[in-house]
Design a protein around this nucleic acid. Structure first.
Lengths: 136, 136
DNA sequence: CTTAACTGTAACAAATAATATTACAATATA
DNA sequence: TATATTGTAATATTATTTGTTACAGTTAAG
């Protein structure tokens, strides 16, 4: 994941936490992040699927946090946006004739998995509430 | 870093470790990874700059490990290829008028730094020798 | 002293991924 | 009924990654 989705999601969630139940429009959120509102709406789909937020259509609609900020841990946010392996993989199949090529993906995956576990564990120590309350 | 550079570098280093001092050409290495030899040579520049490998030009030239495999830890390899923050950042400057936008990058960076430290610490427990000896 | 097998590197091309934009239907409020 | 909003598709643009071509420089070996 080398795109900005983790940052965007956390930004959205922080805004919603600060909004304290008030509905925020995707336009308003996009203005804070400084990206296109459609991207915000797309990211909201994902956050909604995870049960973090809810949205209300129509005039005066918008989104709000669907669960308490201290029940949302950052590893959950990470899991929600995760797409690729942390350390990247090659799309080219390594040469199966080569003893190293034949096994490298297997060993890389093992390494990546254990490394990612450590990262997830670290993120799980922090909640959205922790993150949000840093803002003064 | 969502490109394959970590995987490529570790693949190269593993091949060189297995080669036991024998010089390997970029063509041979590229054949194992299944990428273009020029990419291998570019990656070797980097590995050379870090002191991990040395290369010999000319006929019968190639590359070899410049230090023992158990003195190369995987966090060093990670550091050698690292370009971006692990969890990704937005290039758009968030809105400075917004209390969240104004501070988000600072708080994201703090979060990223501590998270990355944990990852680095985990990688530092493993050496190239450890990785390489898994191949049977 | 020439040929062949390499590395080093630049310039460019192609493919892929990320982000942005436009458009508009559907929905809810006043 | 007019307006502000979400939802979503389609497309465009930009950025990044990967691949290719080309060739000068280096070394070894006949």
């Amino acid at each position: 994941m080398n795109n900005a989705r983790f940052a965007i999601s956390l930004h959205i969630l922080t805004l919603l936490e600060k909004a304290n139940g008030e509905l925020l429009s995707s336009d308003y959120i996009a203005g804070s992040i400084n990206i296109n509102p459609v991207l915000v709406r797309k990211e909201l789909i994902n956050l909604r699927n995870q049960g973090f937020v809810e949205s209300k259509e129509g005039k005066n609609g918008g989104s709000f946090l669907a669960k308490s900020a201290n029940s949302i841990t950052l590893d959950q946010v990470y899991a929600a946006v995760r797409q690729n392996n942390l350390l990247g993989t090659s799309k080219n199949d390594p040469n199966p004739q080569c003893p190293v090529g034949k096994q490298i993906n297997q060993h890389l995956n093992t390494l990546y998995d254990s490394t990612e576990q450590v990262l997830i564990q670290e993120l799980s120590k922090k909640t959205l509430a922790d993150f949000s309350k840093q803002f003064i």
